[in-house]
Design a protein around this nucleic acid. Structure first.
Length: 555
RNA sequence: UGGGCCGUCGCCAAGCGGUAAGGCACAGGACUUUGACUCCUGCAUGCGAUGGUUCGAAUCCAUCCGGCCCAGCCA
């Protein structure tokens, strides 16, 4: 980062604090995921902003697993999250922490809180508590247990810890204000009894602190200065501050919570709950399905680290909820890839072309790997009497504006010669199965002696010397437009993000030795090829990230 | 409707009292060994609306309108 100036409102807040010497410690941010799902593009947005803020001010960045609910969390997720962060370029290094490691500290502080008369054990059932909480427009009423003595509270709380009570039987509540217009301040539950094995602390604890209570303490323990979270936690800020203020003897310079607006990507599902549903119900291959906006999905879809960084920089940060068009993400990828990776020709739906006046055997033609970056070199492709072109590059009766192959029309074959279509061969059902064309030997690419022009250039592959493969066309990300409420119509949603298998597709033979994970840009329509699994026994797979542009569809 | 947050081009987003950056998308043109790429050009007399303060307002004030969040022993 060469610019030390704040680039968004959050950094401006930090900048001001630095200038005013608010903290006598370095700027310190953190990313606190709950290990209950995989990272997605929305998580990356949060990571990016915390990570960059720390870096910009020469501060520190922690990664902390917010694991205070043993019912939902699992080691599978912590490993995946760390892996994805590293892949995305936000390596937390040794600064990986676990909220659960602070359970004892939080417990000890809680006894102090009780001693200060700021928390009490409440015996109300969940239903009773709900009723007494009041509504958005009416105040709540005090719990009958609100005025228990410190001694009784301490005894009861210790009882909770020892497992004397069953889950749901008693909770510890903060004593704040049941008539607060802010629902979060109506004596929130801060500790509950849970009968579950924590993926990390095992069965050591019977009680677990709630997020609203644990989070500020965890931040403070880690010397965090700026705790940035999404805007829906704005209402929780008073509670965050209440907790740390109540524990001021332990944290003289408490961190401050600041909020940013969430982002959505058009047509992408970024809700952990729905993502989990899709995975567990089998509508997608897994968390790494290319139709998902998860880090693993994006990676498989062909996104690069720098394309994601660029995207996150481009969209900025604000307090609003934004819905970024998916085309911006795709644009960032295209921009990154076009100068870094070469192109390759592939035929999705092959149509055989016989060049009737071509008598030679196989001839290798030289093709540039990239038309924007000469450093990517050239490759030799087999050309011969029989080749394959894409079926939609031919129209028997061309519509207006169609300049590709049609009877009587001449086009250029990329890297090879001009060919003219002379005859169309059909099968019994009338389907076009082959085109008979003639080529002009004088028009070889690079020869420089072409005096006439053609209006179109086609991609092609040799009819025999090629690589058959299965092609998956992921036309778009799985959409959430079918979701309404709890139950989503995944059948419909899955159709929208259809995964189409084209088993008869063929690619250049040059791909045979391509390294796994290498990426190639299709020579047409801005398709990108990813997920090339060249391992023995596996089939090649492609996907295209850019849907056909509207203008192509119309023409 | 109690409280909180937010409204600048179709979508992001700069701007922080001195006369509306940029990106994506879109449109037109040039170029081209792919209708891609590249290169030009266009795209808010307008900043949710209405009043007000001011020499001057997207920026300050008031009212209104619209959107989002909150009543888990989830995070």
């Amino acid at each position: 980062m060469d610019d030390t100036r704040a680039v968004n409102f959050l950094e401006r807040i930090i900048e001001e604090d630095v200038e005013n010497n608010v903290y006598h410690r370095p700027v310190h941010t953190r990313f606190p995921p709950e290990p209950n799902g995989y990272l997605h593009i929305g998580s990356l947005y949060a990571i990016n902003l915390n990570y960059n803020a720390a870096r910009r001010f020469g501060g520190k960045f922690n990664m902390r697993f917010d694991d205070t609910n043993p019912l939902k969390e699992d080691m599978e997720y912590v490993n995946a999250i760390i892996e994805d962060m590293k892949w995305a370029g936000y390596d937390p290094g040794n600064n990986v922490f676990f909220g659960s490691d602070y359970f004892q500290m939080i417990y000890d502080l809680t006894e102090k809180l009780i001693e200060r008369g700021l928390a009490y054990v409440c015996d109300l059932t969940p239903e009773e508590m709900h009723l007494k909480r009041g509504t958005l427009t009416t105040a709540g009423t005090n719990s009958p247990y609100r005025d228990r003595s410190v001694e009784e509270n301490l005894t009861l709380f210790r009882g909770m810890r020892e497992g004397v009570f069953a889950p749901g039987e008693r909770v510890l509540r903060a004593k704040i204000d049941m008539s607060s217009p802010n629902m979060n301040m109506r004596d929130p539950v801060i500790y509950r009894i849970l009968n579950a094995t924590h993926y990390r602390s095992g069965d050591k604890w019977k009680i677990y602190p709630m997020y609203d209570y644990a989070h500020p303490i965890q931040d403070a323990i880690e010397d965090i200065t700026h705790s940035m979270c999404s805007i829906e936690f704005k209402d929780h800020r008073p509670l965050y501050e209440w907790v740390l203020n109540s524990l001021d003897f332990a944290f003289p310079e408490p961190p401050k919570q600041r909020e940013f607006g969430r982002i959505n990507i058009t047509g992408a599902i970024t809700s952990k709950r729905y993502l989990r549903q899709l995975v567990s119900l089998g509508y997608v291959d897994g968390w790494d399905d290319p139709r998902l906006p998860t880090v693993k999905g994006l990676r498989r879809r062909g996104f690069t680290q720098s394309s994601i960084h660029r995207f996150l920089t481009e969209i900025g940060v604000s307090r609003d909820m934004s819905t970024v068009d998916i085309s911006m993400l795709e644009s960032c990828l295209r921009d990154d890839l076009k100068s870094k990776v070469g192109s390759v020709m592939a035929v999705i739906d092959p149509l055989r072309v016989t060049i009737t006046n071509y008598e030679g055997d196989i001839e290798y033609v030289k093709v540039e790997n990239s038309n924007v970056n000469p450093e990517l070199g050239t490759r030799a492709l087999p050309f011969g009497r029989h080749i394959l072109v894409d079926r939609d590059d031919f129209m028997e009766t061309p519509e207006k504006g169609f300049h590709r192959l049609y009877p009587g029309n001449e086009v250029r074959l990329k890297g090879a010669y001009f060919i003219k279509c002379e005859e169309v061969i059909k099968d019994d059902s009338g389907k076009v199965i082959e085109l008979l064309c003639v080529y002009d030997p004088e028009t070889k690419s690079g020869s420089g002696n072409v005096t006439r022009k053609v209006k179109s250039t086609l991609h092609w592959v040799h009819a025999e010397k090629n690589l058959p493969c299965d092609v998956y066309l992921y036309s778009r990300l799985l959409t959430n437009e079918n979701i309404s409420g709890e139950e989503a119509d995944w059948e419909g949603a899955a159709d929208k993000g259809s995964k189409v298998l084209m088993s008869n597709a063929v690619v250049e033979e040059s791909l045979r030795n391509a390294a796994p994970e290498s990426r190639f840009q299709f020579l047409r329509h801005g398709y990108f090829v990813v997920d090339i699994a060249c391992k023995p026994g596996e089939k090649l797979r492609f996907n295209r990230i850019a849907a056909l542009k509207e203008s192509y569809r119309k023409k």
